[in-house]
């Protein structure tokens, strides 16, 4: 059971809400049972939920990169990742998406759209730096060749046939238009 004793042992900061007397409400808490919490025993109940934001916090991390913050938070968390800050068109879309809460489709669908644009940006970025991606390797096809060769050959044959057919059709339509 939980627990006055556990409450008393809990780390105390500016925590006094849970200890406020509620005796004026007849029967207040009489049937409270922390073991009836559906998260029990995974949650070691200590009353901290009712203390809201009055908990000890780490020092604030500094950064010189842009961190997008959920609008369901008052401030940025004390610690965060600073990798791959938003940039380009995808970054604009991400900033826009973060103007909506996590409960909205605009937030999530905006981010998915940004991801797809970011993929093209990444490719352009590579090429502009003189780096030509090795798609064969990046798609992991050496593993397909090693462990699934029959299907690999089948896929390659179908791909080649479709490409050749498309080229033939294009040439044919070009001749007709002349």
């Amino acid at each position: 059971m939980a627990t006055k004793t556990e409450k008393e042992q809990a780390p105390m900061g500016d925590r006094n809400i849970a200890d406020m007397p509620k005796d004026y409400i007849p029967g207040w808490g009489i049937d409270a049972d922390p073991e009836n919490d559906p998260t029990y025993p995974m949650k070691k109940w200590n009353g901290a939920d009712h203390e809201r934001l009055n908990y000890p916090k780490a020092p604030q991390q500094d950064t010189d990169v842009e961190i997008l913050k959920s609008i369901e938070r008052p401030v940025v968390t004390r610690v965060f990742g600073s990798t791959v800050p938003p940039s380009g068109l995808s970054g604009m879309l991400r900033r826009k998406a973060f103007k909506y809460s996590e409960g909205t489709s605009a937030h999530w669908m905006g981010l998915i759209l940004a991801d797809r644009i970011n993929m093209v940006e990444g490719l352009i970025d590579d090429l502009s730096k003189g780096y030509i991606p090795n798609f064969f390797k990046e798609w992991g096809w050496p593993a397909e060749w090693k462990y699934n060769r029959k299907k690999f050959v089948q896929k390659a044959a179908i791909g080649t046939a479709v490409t050749l057919a498309a080229i033939w059709l294009l040439k044919k339509s070009a001749k007709k238009s002349r």
Binding site: L68, K69, R73, V79, F80, E102
Partner: peptide, 9 residues
């Protein structure tokens, strides 16, 4: 609640 600024869930 103090490690991810980008979401609350």
């Amino acid at each position: 609640h103090e490690s991810n600024p980008e979401a609350t869930a």
